[in-house]
């Protein structure tokens, strides 16, 4: 059950925790768009993942210390990783219903020809600057699997970007 501490964290519009969440929104929205190329779907993906995170991690949110900059950075990394993980999981369930979006936009960008895991891993590594260790945790993969996903994703992306249909 959410207790008064959590209510205090979540209820305050200008609370430290909400400031942290607000600062994560632009990056996580862009990540959502990398998973599902549609503005509304990307928004919904973030909101749903945030809800899942708050329900699952209510105890963590109650106990979290946002005192100094080092702690804030640590919490920020944890929250970002958790929400990213939920976004990938939710996107995997929705992708099959949204094939039309990929047909429409996939022809414009080689990136959307990659599979979900490759898109997620490449985006988090290159655009969000996450380490391989973080990718292992977020994607629930072993070290060699992360290396494989990144390697194959990069190779396929380069190959697809050189093919005619992308450059048309």
């Amino acid at each position: 059950m959410l207790d008064s501490f959590l209510i205090r964290y979540l209820g305050m519009n200008d609370g430290q925790f909400m400031t942290l969440i607000d600062s994560l929104i632009p990056g996580l929205y862009s990540f959502g768009y990398a998973l599902i190329p549609d503005e509304l779907e990307a928004e919904q993906l973030f909101v749903d993942a945030y809800s899942v995170f708050v329900i699952r991690e209510s105890e963590y949110i109650q106990e979290v210390e946002l005192g100094d900059a080092k702690e804030r950075a640590k919490v920020r990394r944890f929250v970002q990783a958790q929400i990213c993980s939920d976004m990938v999981e939710l996107a995997a369930k929705r992708t099959s219903h949204l094939i039309g979006l990929f047909r429409k936009k996939g022809d414009e960008l080689a990136f959307y020809k990659l599979n979900l895991l490759q898109r997620a891993a490449l985006y988090m590594k290159e655009n969000m600057g996450m380490s391989s260790q973080a990718l292992q945790e977020i994607l629930a993969l072993k070290k060699h699997q992360v290396t494989e996903v990144l390697y194959n994703g990069k190779a396929l992306l380069k190959e697809l970007s050189n093919t005619e249909f992308v450059n048309e």
Binding site: Y29, S30, A34, L109, A110, L122, K158, S161
Partner: peptide, 11 residues
């Protein structure tokens, strides 16, 4: 590689 990734900015 980065140029091939989407980087949409939130409105």
């Amino acid at each position: 590689l980065k140029a091939l990734l989407p980087n949409i900015e939130i409105s």
